[in-house]
């Protein structure tokens, strides 16, 4: 896990700073800031994995560590797929920024990427608070059967 942003709250704070980048500055610096957004996304998932006693993978999936981290987090935890598309959208916006032909398009994708990373942070921090987030809907799993109830009420370590 990155030492600079050890908690999701720190990630949120940094996102706020990046989001406040003035338009003109963002147009010129989005290419430089996008790797950091990707790294912040990875940090969010690292936080989740570490809190659950797992060693975050350093592998990549489809060229992105973020997708590998998501796959690792979702293994045995189908409700974590509630943020699968969110992670893929982050990668998509990252690619748009990298491939954009003009600065307007790049800046727009950069802004969208910030919002999507923020959603990932909100979802994961919410799930760290209430483990059942995404259980009944996205995983289609019961919350109130004894085994599920025990899992849903067990707080991960380090939170």
């Amino acid at each position: 896990m990155t030492e600079e942003y050890p908690h999701v709250g720190d990630v949120m704070a940094r996102l706020g700073v990046i989001a406040a980048t003035p338009r003109e500055a963002a147009r010129s610096s989005s290419l430089r800031l996008v790797p950091e957004l990707l790294q912040l996304s990875e940090t969010i998932l690292e936080t989740w994995l570490s809190a659950h006693g797992a060693e975050p993978t350093v592998r990549q999936k489809e060229g992105f560590r973020l997708l590998a981290l998501h796959a690792q987090a979702a293994r045995g935890e189908p409700s974590f797929n509630a943020c699968r598309e969110t992670c893929r959208e982050i990668v998509f916006q990252n690619n748009v920024v990298s491939a954009a032909g003009d600065e307007d398009q790049r800046e727009r994708a950069f802004r969208l990427m910030i919002m999507v990373v923020r959603h990932l942070a909100l979802f994961v921090s919410g799930k760290l608070e209430v483990a059942g987030l995404g259980e009944f809907c996205c995983a289609s799993r019961p919350l109130r059967q004894p085994a599920a109830e025990a899992a849903a009420t067990t707080q991960p370590s380090g939170v």
């Binding site: 509630a82 598309e85 969110t86 999507v116 979802f123 059942g132 987030l133 009944f136």
Partner: peptide, 11 residues
């Protein structure tokens, strides 16, 4: 970009 993202509806 958030067309299927979680709204926390269940909670």
């Amino acid at each position: 970009p958030l067309k299927t993202s979680c709204c926390g509806g269940a909670h």
